[in-house]
Write a protein that binds this DNA or RNA. Structure first.
Lengths: 201, 201
DNA sequence: CCACGCAACTTGACGCTGTCAAGATATGAC
DNA sequence: GTCATATCTTGACAGCGTCAAGTTGCGTGG
């Protein structure tokens, strides 16, 4: 009857990370709505209100999860960039590929960080990694910005397209899994766009 | 002490609609996560489990709300189309404008229907109106489809761009309301894209 | 006009949830 | 070895979705 020994977990500061792991697993199993402090606690073998000690709120845990999500997101883009040609167009394509790598590799996490739900704005690590994601995109777009227009135009053209493609792919494939077959290829769609932008000397 | 008279509501079949109204109001007030059967019931002045009679589930109510959302979405696109030039390019722009009208006019409802959460797939009215939205887009893209490529390529180019722009605008403006000033104009962004697609013959 | 039947609710209960207060325990400093 | 404090546990509370069972009122048949 010794279900779980009391205080089975060593107090080494690993609990917050373990709770985030549990949360991501929960997201995978049940989607964005299935996140629960008590279940994360159970998965991490701690009592139901242990999470409350490390995270003020459910929102606090959600922000920690989103921070990890953005971190993986940044990693995915950087990984593609490093193994790509330094040519501006190749770099931009690598960014887009990384974007889609993350979305298709961890669809629930992708949908979660872009779900529109509010995270803790005063959480510094979250702000840092989230703005780094945008900085990467901005840097890759920079060579394509015409001299007479604001960088935002190109940035949002690219960002909207890749984000829209990823977001629609994930939401619609979730709705209807057999849809995958007729889904157009990323490259085919983007080739049209790439015709309309050129490196600005 | 007659707080609310028992059975104050006439049984005229208007409760389902009233509950959807209440749900949309709740979405506006608290965002996608704030939807609750019991609060919808309270807003509609019925007992806590009256919604359960008309909607099997919370998911059932969510699907009814999403159905209304898609209906408004379709209306917004059609309204712009009707008051636009019949020229293919003007029609396509009208679709995009309608898309953004809906997203900015009812941001919470827009985020809700595209939140990636599962709705009842066996709900006929939902399926009808949701697929109608896609049909409208598809029709507007048709004149731009090159003879040698599949329609999906152009459709997803347009759809991804307008959806991504709308979705990013809504999520980021929610995060950071003062961001609105530096947000690029839709037309400026899309003008780049429109250079890359032309009416086919 | 009345009784009956069924649709549209209400009431109550259950286990789940987040959150807080208060108690227990382990770990590092002295 | 004892003590302080960070880290967790226990217990309680209200609110949630969902189901079962009871109640109400409207329409229909006589």
């Amino acid at each position: 009857m010794t279900d779980v020994p009391t205080h089975s977990r060593k107090r080494d500061g690993s609990l917050p990370n373990a709770l985030v792991d549990a949360g991501i697993e929960l997201l995978r199993e049940r989607g964005s709505g299935g996140l629960s402090l008590r279940e994360c606690a159970a998965k991490a073998n701690v009592s139901h209100s242990a999470p409350g000690y490390h995270f003020k709120n459910l929102k606090g845990l959600a922000t920690a999860i989103a921070t990890r999500g953005f971190s993986h997101f940044v990693d995915a883009m950087e990984k593609r960039c490093q193994s790509a040609d330094p040519d501006p167009r190749a770099q931009l394509e690598a960014i887009c590929q990384g974007y889609l790598d993350f979305a298709s590799g961890q669809p629930e996490l992708f949908l979660f960080i872009f779900s529109g739900q509010q995270f803790d704005k005063d959480n510094a690590p979250f702000e840092v990694v989230a703005s780094k994601a945008y900085a990467i995109l901005r840097e890759a777009c920079e060579p394509f910005v015409p001299k007479d227009s604001s960088p935002e135009e190109i940035e949002f053209l690219i960002w909207s397209l890749v984000h829209g493609f990823a977001h629609l792919s994930m939401t619609r494939k979730k709705d209807n899994p057999k849809l995958g077959q007729t889904w157009p290829d990323f490259d085919a769609v983007f080739s049209h766009l790439f015709k309309s932008i050129t490196v600005q000397e």
